[in-house]
Design a protein around this nucleic acid. Structure first.
Lengths: 110, 110
DNA sequence: CCATAACTTGAAGACTTCTTCATGTCTATA
DNA sequence: TATAGACATGAAGAAGTCTTCAAGTTATGG
């Protein structure tokens, strides 16, 4: 929700917690490729419809995605282009972590 | 901890949850400037010593920070340079969100 | 060797977040 | 205007996370 007047580091933490769910990550990744209707997301993500709605609600309230109705379906889109960059950043950090852990394991073996 | 064999989107979610705490964000921000001893972090962050230790433990187990003992104090350092880039990415997204919300509020007023 | 400073740890209760269920809304179409 | 399809919502129990407390390490100085 990005409550105004909050210290920045607290807003950041809140924001990261919003990303801290596997379904929400998948939603954002799918949406950063292109817009999707809810039933399209549903066929890509293994999750119950009501659960998907809940997670979409979290992303919507956080201001990360936008919803609109079109031809009898509800479509979702990324609200900000920066989301893509952030997910990329995260991917790079993750592979850094994996390398680091591989090194640690190698050191343990030797 | 970055459990191996986990789907990538789940590892990502886990990773973002690790960042989803105000104290942990502050720790990473301070450490991405320079190494700090625990008592130095303690004087910058308003938090109980045992709580700080807990949060440092979370970051350590996630492989984001490194610990070492030196001259009677315990010092922490960022484990990966990518952390800095990610925090920057997050900052930009956050300011994008703030702008977006300001626009929404402006539209509501008019 | 004892005391102290600097940290860490495990455990427990308070608090949040998740998932699911039942129900509700909205829209197109027969 | 009834019906069905496509989503959303509120509530509730289960599961996870936070903070703090008491107790434990580890090294250093007296």
């Amino acid at each position: 929700m990005l409550t105004p007047g909050l210290p920045l580091y607290q807003a950041k933490a809140e924001f990261f917690r919003t990303l801290g769910h596997p379904a929400r990550i998948r939603i954002l990744e799918l949406l950063s490729e292109r817009d999707h209707a809810v039933h399209e997301l549903l066929s890509e993500i293994e999750i119950e419809p009501s659960n998907l709605s809940q997670q979409l609600g979290v992303l919507r309230r956080a201001g990360l995605v936008l919803q609109h109705r079109e031809a009898g379906e509800v479509r979702y889109a990324i609200a900000l282009p920066e989301v893509r960059a952030l997910l990329l950043s995260a991917r790079e950090l993750l592979s850094g972590l994996i390398d680091e852990q591989a090194e640690l394991r190698a050191q343990l073996r030797s």
